[in-house]
C-alpha cells in the first residue's frame, strides 16, 4: 500500500528524519510513538506530501508520491490533524462535501450530500450538519474531520495525534470512532501518545527516536519486552 524508502527530511540543515524506511500493508494498523520533537509529525506529513522529503522515496500503491498529480493521490490518503483544521467559514456539511463536489465531476450534489449525511449519522453527527465548526466541541470537531477524510473513500488514513488537543473526557468518543474504522479493515497509521490505545489498536508499533525508527514490533512484544534502551526509558516515563 505504502512504501517508504530511506526518507530523509531536514529543516535548515537540521536532520529531522534520517533515512526512515517503512512498509505499510493493506489493512494494517500502525501506531507511531516517540518523544516530542522526534519527527513523528514530520514523517506523517511526508506521507501525503504536506512536507516535501529532502531525499528518499515514498511509493503509494506502487507509484512514486512525488510524481504525477499529487492532488489525485491525496484524495486517497485521508489525513486527520491534531488541531482538526475544519474550514472555519463553512458548515459541517459544506466542510465534508467541499472536496468531493469539486473533485467528482460526475457525482450530483444530492448524491454527495446523501453520502455525507449517512456518514454523519453513522458517527452521531447528523444534527450538526448545518452547524458552524466553532459551535462544536473538540470531540465533535475531530469526528467531523474524520468524516471529511472518509468522504473521499481513502485507501489509507493517517492520524497525527488526533486526541492530543482534546479535553480528557472527549478522548474516548474520538478513539471509539477510530477503532470502529479500524474494524472496517481500513489501513491506518496513527501517531499517538495514548499507549493503551496503541496497544489495543495496532498490529505493529513503531518507536521513533531522533528521526530514526529505533524499534518496531507487535504491540505485545513492544510494550512487554522493549529492546532498545531509549524505548525502555521512554516507556518507563510515559507509563508511570
Amino acid at each position: 500500500m505504502l512504501s517508504v524508502n530511506k526518507l530523509t527530511k531536514t529543516f535548515h540543515g537540521d536532520v529531522v528524519l534520517d533515512e526512515v524506511s517503512l512498509e505499510v500493508k493493506k489493512g494494517e494498523k500502525i501506531a507511531i510513538i516517540g518523544a516530542s520533537g522526534s519527527g513523528k509529525s514530520t514523517l506523517l506529513r511526508c506521507l501525503n506530501m504536506l512536507e516535501t522529503p529532502t531525499s528518499g522515496h515514498i511509493y503509494f500503491q506502487g507509484e512514486a508520491l512525488g510524481e504525477g498529480n499529487i492532488n489525485k493521490k491525496r484524495q486517497k490518503i485521508g489525513f486527520v490533524f491534531q488541531s482538526f483544521n475544519l474550514f472555519a467559514n463553512m458548515t459541517v456539511l459544506k466542510n465534508i462535501t467541499l472536496a468531493p463536489l469539486l473533485q467528482q465531476k460526475d457525482a450530483s450534489k444530492m448524491e454527495v450530500e446523501g453520502k455525507a449525511m449517512k456518514l454523519l449519522s453513522k458517527f452521531g453527527l447528523a444534527d450538526k450538519a448545518d452547524a458552524m465548526p466553532n459551535s462544536l466541541s473538540g470531540g465533535q470537531k475531530q469526528r467531523v474531520a474524520i468524516v471529511r477524510a472518509l468522504m473521499n473513500d481513502p485507501d489509507i488514513m493517517l492520524f497525527d495525534e488526533p486526541t492530543s488537543a482534546l479535553d480528557p473526557e472527549l478522548v474516548k468518543e474520538v478513539l471509539d470512532v477510530i477503532l470502529d474504522l479500524a474494524s472496517s479493515g481500513m489501513t491506518m497509521v496513527i501517531v499517538t501518545h495514548e499507549m493503551k490505545f496503541a496497544k489495543n489498536f495496532a498490529d505493529r508499533v513503531i518507536f521513533i527516536d531522533k528521526g530514526k525508527i529505533a524499534e518496531e514490533n507487535t504491540p505485545k512484544e513492544f510494550f512487554e519486552n522493549p529492546k532498545c534502551d531509549r524505548l525502555k526509558e521512554f516507556l518507563s516515563k510515559v507509563l508511570n
Binding site: N71, F79, F81, N85, F87, L98, Q103
Partner: peptide, 11 residues
C-alpha cells in the same frame, strides 16, 4: 492549518 486541510483533502 486551513490551507493544509484543503491540500490534504486533495484540493
Amino acid at each position: 492549518g486551513q490551507m493544509e486541510a484543503g491540500r490534504a483533502a486533495g484540493l
